[in-house]
């Protein structure tokens, strides 16, 4: 393989279900060893993209390659490179943890002599070795999730696809999971593609692709995305939500700044937010309930690119 070959290359990919278009001309590529995030609301297209990458859905238009293989023409080779962790568990609940991993090992062609040792080391790495002989159905959601990840890493894939990894995990477990993923990336130069609708999870990625209504609306590192928004971000709430539009107009005409109305709040991006905050409070203080001044977050990036908040878009 060549260093110039991206781990994942998606070109001009579109996908339609019978009743709607889920992906619309999406292009991006993921570099080897990168942690790449697909951020977007549910229904934004990331699940469809995830399923095409994992070979469950066909490519309708465009091309997708994984490593040096084409996902349409070389399915089997692609499947061998990938480890896939689904959001909905793919474990057999009526089998024990060990039995599940044994089947997985055989399906991925792991030699018999190595399999048991690999199962133990994978379960140990995810902190579930003591559960090996319990039925999966008896484990808590968080433990099942870890077994699921141990299962998808068993054959040492070059690329790991993770769908909503934090589902069902408590905050401590999420932190542990991410430190484990970074460790794996370092040890085995694993490329990781994560799909998520959670902003704090997206912060863990080297680069982020934001998907909205099937289109790629942003693609950059989290920090570049944040700084693309502007210096500061002001969020204004009014006690009379019906007057928000009028208030927005007044602020624009008197202070000469552009104001975005997002749901029940007004948003202003500004190089120096503190001066603006003072001006707004002295001019419009009476009709304002609260003003928050903050550095832009990924949430602000999403709002700026789509005109909607991440939660409202779902």
């Amino acid at each position: 393989m060549f260093a110039s070959t991206p781990a994942i290359a998606v070109r001009n990919l579109s996908y339609s279900y019978l009743d709607r278009r889920a992906l619309d001309g999406v292009s991006f590529s993921v570099t080897e060893g990168e942690i790449f995030g697909l951020l977007g609301p549910n229904g934004g297209g990331k699940s469809t993209l995830f399923r095409i990458l994992s070979t469950l859905l066909p490519v309708q238009t465009g091309t997708v390659s994984i490593g040096e293989f084409d996902v349409t023409k070389q399915q089997r080779a692609v499947r061998g490179l990938l480890g896939v962790t689904f959001q909905s568990p793919s474990l057999d609940r009526k089998l024990t943890v060990r039995e599940n991993l044994q089947h997985q090992g055989v399906l991925y062609g792991i030699p018999k002599a190595e399999l048991q040792a690999r199962i133990v080391s994978n379960l140990t790495a995810l902190g579930v070795a003591d559960r090996a002989d319990q039925l999966v159905g008896k484990l808590s959601g968080g433990l099942q999730r870890r077994v699921e990840i141990a299962k998808s890493l068993l054959h040492r894939p070059r690329i790991l696809l993770l769908d909503e990894p934090s589902t069902g995990l408590d905050p401590g477990a999420i932190l542990e999971l991410w430190s484990h993923l970074r460790e794996l990336r370092k040890q085995m130069s694993l490329t990781i593609l994560v799909s998520t609708h959670l902003l704090n999870e997206a912060e863990n990625c080297d680069r982020l692709a934001i998907l909205h209504l099937g289109r790629l609306v942003a693609l950059d590192t989290p920090s570049s995305l944040r700084s693309s928004v502007g210096g500061d971000c002001l969020t204004i709430q009014s006690h009379d939500a019906g007057q928000l539009a009028i208030l927005a107009n007044d602020i624009t005409s008197r202070l000469g700044v552009s104001v975005q109305k997002v749901g029940d709040v007004l948003r202003i991006e500004r190089g120096n937010g503190l001066d603006l905050l003072r001006d707004i409070m002295s001019e419009f203080g009476s009709s304002i309930t609260s003003v928050t001044l903050g550095k832009p977050t990924l949430s602000d990036v999403f709002v700026q690119r789509t005109g909607q908040t991440l939660s409202a878009a779902e």
């Binding site: 994992s54 070979t55 469950l56 089997r76 080779a77 499947r79 061998g80 990938l82 896939v84 689904f86 909905s88 568990p89 793919s90 474990l91 057999d92 609940r93 997985q104 399906l107 991925y108 062609g109 299962k151």
Partner: peptide, 14 residues
């Protein structure tokens, strides 16, 4: 329904 099948389908098995 339980999800086991999707795990088998993404594996390189014939």
């Amino acid at each position: 329904k339980e999800g086991f099948l999707q795990g088998v389908l993404v594996s390189p098995v014939s």
